[in-house]
Each structure stands twice: as C-alpha cells, then as structure tokens.
C-alpha cells in the first residue's frame, strides 16, 4: 500500500487505544467504546479491527499482566506506533480542513 488509509471504525479503535494508553487491550477497548458511543461494536469486530491495524503497522502489541478476573490469562496490550500517530494526526488535520471550508454563517445556522 502506498498510503495507509484509516477507516472510520479503525479510527475509533485507534483513538481509543491512544486514549487508554497503558490499559489498551481488546476487552477494555470494546467496553470503552460501548460506554462512550451510542452504538455498540461487538467484541469480535474490535478484535478484527485491531488485527487489521496491526497489519497496517498502526499499532504494536506486547503481552501484559494477567489478572484473576480474566482467569489468569495474559492480555495483549496495544500501543500506537509512530505510523499510527501520524495517521491519526493526518486524519484529524484532514477533517478540520474540511470543517474550515464550511462557511461560518452556515455553521451558525446549524447551531454548531
């Protein structure tokens, strides 16, 4: 791929990874999204998305500590790679560029 593209779902997941920092593993990410967004994204979907992000090189992962509530099993903790950071920033940049192109009176009309 010449230029990695970030899908909407991928963006949401990647942002959550960034937000959770040290605590970013699949279950936590799913719960976080579930609580903060009105729509619920299923666990397998998040899992697949994370794999896809890893394939694209936007996240890296390492095995982390186990807790009793997960039956003593290890977590896979995700961190945003530099490529991921760049992609997120670029994405945000692109969006704000588009926002800026909307004329101010119309924005006022929308009440935004």
């Amino acid at each position: 791929m010449k230029r990695a593209f970030l899908g909407e779902l991928e963006e949401v997941v990647l942002l959550t990874v960034a937000a959770l920092q040290e605590q970013a593993y699949c279950a936590a990410i799913t719960q976080n999204i579930d609580q903060q967004m009105a729509r619920s994204i299923s666990f397998p979907t998040v899992h697949t998305t994370l794999q896809r992000l890893a394939e694209k090189g936007f996240v890296s992962s390492q095995m982390g500590g186990a807790t009793t509530e997960r039956g003593g099993r290890q977590k896979r903790l995700f961190t945003v790679t530099t490529a991921g950071q760049r992609a997120l920033i670029e994405c945000r940049h692109l969006r704000s560029q588009l926002w800026d192109q909307i004329p101010t009176p119309i924005l006022l009309l929308w009440g935004a």
Partner: peptide, 18 residues
Amino acid sequence: EDELQGDLLEMFAYWIKT
C-alpha cells in the same frame, strides 16, 4: 487462544452487568 479467552471472560463479566 490465551488472550482471547481472557478477554472474553472479562467481556462476559461486563455483559452480565450491562
């Protein structure tokens, strides 16, 4: 297997609550 089982267990506890 290991991580998915663990994650699923946690999710299960969470789903019970929600």
